[in-house]
Design a protein around this nucleic acid. Structure first.
Lengths: 246, 246
DNA sequence: GCGGTTCAATACTCATACAATTAAGCTAGA
DNA sequence: TCTAGCTTAATTGTATGAGTATTGAACCGC
């Protein structure tokens, strides 16, 4: 019998876009796990039962599980079944995992952890960028600054520019491992910015801080770049904290 | 026809242990990609052709590709096929990816990047650990120190203890995002230690540095912890550099 | 009690058929 | 000649059923 997928899918919201089915299922399950609807140690229903419940084939379901397994969220073994792994084994910095985590409002502790990471990584990256940046990097950062000024952080375009600004700095650090962190950092930047705007507008204009950072990197001054970036993240953290507990 | 997997598998070394087939294929392909045998932009052979060449079913092959895709190594689309993505999109900090990268001797640039990451993250983590460490953390670190002293870094047990030491510090920092980096850091620690020993023994005894770091964390002195860890990583980097270009 | 054996539950693998997607080539019309 | 739209074919995506391998747990002999 061919499945009529899409009707009365009760158990999961299936906000699936144009993805492939295995991708949608992986996302839905991932969001459910990150959101706490399946706790570490929980055993998922068997392949046949669960795939029928989701109205997908076992093939698609299994490929979804492979994706989650590759990111450390679940672990499958014959006889035992598929169970959610301990949180310490999740690849929290995986871009998809971060996106899924922000689907359901993440815990305050998680936000704090991400900011602590930013506070550690971004100043160091800024210092490296001040030493290694190319002309193209500078041009990109300048353009991002203009865009931020034109649109403001309340708009989608403005946030994209902000993200591009921070991302370019990580690129300019010329370090593949740091680059791999860019998506994680980007997630923190974007979402915390959104959080801030939930509570009546921006508490403070972040543009001057960004300009100072830009100047330091253009000048090739690592110490200044580190200091300004530290200040920038500190202010962002303060604003976000204020937004979280008003 | 049932496949006779395991005989004359020419194209890939198939150093597959007790893994499931999809896992072995994912690993073999992952190692091949990380090792440069498939370059970014390259299109893999079609599912049917390639799975036959590997003597596995299309199902198992596809699940392997899902794993690689989840880690950002490849991207599949109908009609176009499956191609290796740009290196900037790889999740370089994924534990599996790191393990695969170290299968074929990694580039000097990659080692440098990892050490730069250690230099950024570990001192900060040590400072946090000095503030937040529990009695259990201290006990674990002490035990790891003893083990390192007993076995020395030339043995497997000694290296495991070294790794446990660094890992406990990251745990003691009480930050999930930093914890997620532990496997990456651990990979850097282990492999660079092995590299060092390739060239006639250890250039210098790292134990005193570790003890100083331990003392700082026990004393709850963040600044001292940061400083000693910085020194420790700096020395490790110098030794590794010497080992790489003797 | 204890060590080995059997059993059954579950994921894993295979094979095949068919559907959906999409790049490229083709055709019709201006 | 150029372009918009259609057609086609190549490739991945999905579904289904049959059979295999693994492994925890119950069982049995000692």
């Amino acid at each position: 019998m061919r499945q009529d997928r899409g009707l009365e899918n009760i158990t999961l919201p299936l906000a699936s876009g144009s993805r492939r089915i295995h991708g949608s299922v992986a996302r839905d399950l991932g969001v459910a796990i990150l959101g706490g609807r399946y706790a570490p140690g929980d055993v998922l229903p068997g392949e046949i039962e669960f795939s029928e419940k989701l109205n997908v084939s076992r093939t698609a379901y299994r490929e979804a599980i492979r994706i989650l397994s590759a990111k450390g969220l679940v672990e499958s073994r014959p006889r035992t079944g598929t169970r959610v792994t301990q949180r310490s084994r999740w690849n929290l910095l995986d871009p998809d995992i971060l996106a899924w985590a922000f689907e359901s409002e993440p815990s305050e502790a998680f936000i704090r952890d991400l900011f602590e990471l930013r506070m550690i990584v971004e100043p160091a990256a800024a210092a490296l960028a001040a030493e290694r940046r190319s002309g193209l990097d500078i041009a990109r950062m300048g353009h991002a600054l203009e865009e931020m000024g034109r649109h403001g952080l309340a708009t989608e375009a403005g946030r994209a520019a902000d993200q591009a600004f921070h991302n370019t700095i990580l690129e300019a650090a010329r370090n593949g491992a740091l680059m791999a962190l860019s998506s994680s950092i980007a997630a923190a930047v974007t979402w915390t910015t959104i959080f801030k705007h939930r509570r009546q507008g921006l508490p403070r204009d972040p543009l001057p801080d960004h300009r100072a950072l830009y100047d330091a990197i253009v000048a090739g001054d690592p110490a200044a770049a580190r200091a300004t970036m530290t200040e920038l993240v500190r202010l962002a953290l303060a604003d976000t904290k204020m937004a979280l507990r008003p």
